[in-house]
Amino acid sequence: MNKLITSMAATALLTAATVGQAASRDYVSIVGSSTVYPFATVVAERFGKSTSFKTPKIESTGSGGGLKLFCAGVGVEHPDITNASRRIKQTELDQCVENGVKEIIEVKVGYDGIAFANSKKSAQLEVELKDIFLALAKEVPDPKGGEKLVANPYTTWNEVNPNLPNTKIEVLGPPPTSGTRDAFVELGMEGGCNQIDWIKALAKDKHRTVCHSIREDGAYVEAGENDNLIVQKLEANPNAYGIFGYSFLDQNSDKVHGAKVGGVEPEFDAIANGEYPVSRSLYFYIKKAHVGTIPGIQEYAKEFVSENASGEEGYLSDRGLIPAPSEEHQSYQKAVNGLEPMPSKI
C-alpha cells in the first residue's frame, strides 16, 4: 500500500516537473513530406554531428499534414520547419497568416523524378504520358471515337497503344495522402490528359475531375506509402508496374528499371534539366518568427542549401536528390542567409 502511494506520488511529481520544462525547446522541430524526409534526415544528422547544436527532430507527416502543423501557430509547441514535395498552396498560406505565422521563408532544395518502373525480369517499357493517362484514368475518351467519356475499358497495355506489350494493366502506386501521388497525378496524368485536345478544352472543373481521377476497378493498386514494399512486389510480379520516387529507383537499380516516358529515361541528368516529364520540386519552409528563439534553425537551413549538401556534387545527390541548377540554388542560398520571407500571395 505504501509503495503504491509512493509510486503514485513520484509520477505526479514527475508530470509536474516536466510540464514546466515544456516551455522551452533547444532542438529544431521539423515536420513534413515523406519524400524530403530521407534528405532532410541526412542533413540533420550531419548538422548534429558537426555543430554544437542538438540534432533536429524530423517527423514524416506528409506534405499536407506538415503544412497544417506548421501553420497552426507561433510558439515552441509548433514546428519550426516543414518539408514539402510540392509548393505551398494559397489556402495554406492564408491559414498560416490567420494563425499568426506571417513571415515564411521558402527554400527549394532540388528536384525529384517520379519513376514508372517494372522488374528487370521483363522488358523496359516505353510510354507516352497519354498512354499512362489512358491506362489509369477512371474515365477515358470512347475508343470508338467521338468526344464522349466512358468508364475505362482497357485491360491490357496493347489495347491502350498497339506498341505496348500484351500484358495486363497492373500498377502499384501510393495512396491519395501521398505527395508522390499528387505529383504523379498533376504531372503524369494531367500531362497525358492535355495531349487530348478536346479534354484540354473542357471547363476547369470538369477538366480537373477527368484528368485527376484514377481508376478504382483494381488496375491501380494502392500499395501504401512504403516504396520499398512496391519494389518488392514488382520483383515478385514482373508484369506489374510501380510508381515511386527516383531515390528508390536509384537504390534498387539492380532489381527494377524505370520506363522511358516520352522517350526519356528517368536518369539524373534528364530529371535535373527538366527533360524527364514527371519531375517535381522539393521545398522546405522556415518560420521566421522562430529564428533566434529556437537555436540552430538558420544554421540547419544553411547546411541544407550549402554547396556541400544540395549542390551539384553534394552528399545529397548520392542519396538521389536532383540538385537545382546553380543559379536557382544560389538564389535560395541568398534567401536563407538574408532570411527573406516569401510574398503572401503566390
Binding site: 532542438y27 534526415t41 540533420a44 548534429g48 524530423i58 517527423e59
Partner: peptide, 9 residues
C-alpha cells in the same frame, strides 16, 4: 503524438 520521427540523439 509525434513519436514517429527521426531522432539521432
Amino acid at each position: 503524438i509525434g513519436m514517429v520521427a527521426f531522432i539521432v540523439d
